[in-house]
Computed example of a mutant assay.
Amino acid sequence: MTYFTPGPLSLIQDLGRHGHQHIGVSPGGPMDEHAFLWANRLLDNPLNAPQIEITMGQFSCQFQADTTIALTGADMSATVNGQPVAVWQSLHIRAGDQLSLSGARRGIRTYLAVKDGFRVTGILNSCATVMRDGLGGADRRGGKLAAQDLLEYKVTSPIPTRQVPQQFIPEYGQDISLNVIPGYQYDRFDKAERERFFSAEYTVTPQMDRMGYRLSGTAIHCQTTSLVSEGIALGAIQIPADGQPIILMRDRQTIGGYPKIGCVTARDLSTLAQCQPGAKVRFIEKDLYQAEAERVIEHHFFQGYVGKKHAEQILNQLTGPAE
């Protein structure tokens, strides 16, 4: 069990509550899926093992039993019993150890995993916390972690220390490019509007949360200003009446009627999820089949089916070598 100083926002997350959008339930899940998956891989956990997503830091907890943990995502100057520890690696923890995180100069989310995952009772086949739906989390009602919360985990013997290879560790910057798959109402935007969208630079505004990231910059306009509400995919880019893009994230609404120019790829959403307000964003058009191939390879990699070289070979066979 752990005692918390949870900071501004710490949430229990697994990979999400899928298959229920038709009844208005958002999937939720980790904002930075890449960091989440690596934390579980470091510990040989099931991919869906629950973790704590720590936003903005100022977090601390005390472990009441031996375990091994992994920290991934933003570097929040973590310490154990006052001694600095690195992220993107596993670490043996003894009963009574105190983990503390402060803040991050780059990135805003850190993931804390324990060996075999935190023991949290799910609802609708998931323990992912979606506050707006009132589902998931330690209280099963969508609440963020509070100081009085206790989380159970299995007592485990030490396992060898592991580190994520350097090539898989992102550099969380404030100047990013996001791959976009054309879709939805793409053809309803004039060619000039599409070119403007892909050539403009946008800024991440403070209006950003687990539902969506609102951007500011060159206004984009669609020939169709309103639509019959339709299902919304992860990463959909809405263009409301003011022409300022909104990128929909993990806790997005399940339907909407704004025109949507396309979708940001799932991998690039992890990059966006670590951006602070003021970050500069550009969009790059992405081929659907290339994006699908890369997503399949990523899934297979984390399921242990392929290594990096094999993944590159598969990608080249499916799409041709990258230029």
Rank of each mutant, 00 (worst) to 15 (best):
Q83A: 13
A95D: 11
P50C: 12
A78P: 15
C61A: 13
D66W: 05
P46E: 14
T55L: 12
R41S: 13
N40R: 10
W38C: 07
D75M: 00
Q83I: 11
L71T: 04
L42H: 09
W88C: 06
G73A: 07
L42R: 10
F59L: 03
W88R: 06
V80G: 02
A35L: 03
R94G: 03
A39P: 09
L47W: 01
A70F: 09
I69G: 08
N40T: 12
W88A: 04
L37P: 03
H92R: 14
F36S: 03
L37R: 15
V85S: 08
N48T: 13
W38H: 13
F63P: 05
A49I: 03
Q58D: 12
D66R: 13
T79D: 00
I54V: 15
T72Q: 07
G82P: 07
N81Y: 10
M56L: 15
S60T: 00
L47K: 11
R41Y: 08
F59W: 06
M76G: 01
V85H: 09
W88E: 02
I93K: 07
F59E: 00
V85K: 04
G57E: 07
Q62Y: 01
L71I: 06
A70L: 05
L47Q: 11
Q89T: 13
T79Y: 00
V80E: 00
Q51T: 14
S77W: 00
Q64M: 13
A35M: 07
I93S: 07
Q64E: 15
Q51D: 03
S77T: 12
D44P: 04
L47Y: 00
T72P: 11
L47F: 01
A65R: 15
V80C: 10
T55W: 07
A95L: 07
L47M: 11
G73C: 04
P84E: 01
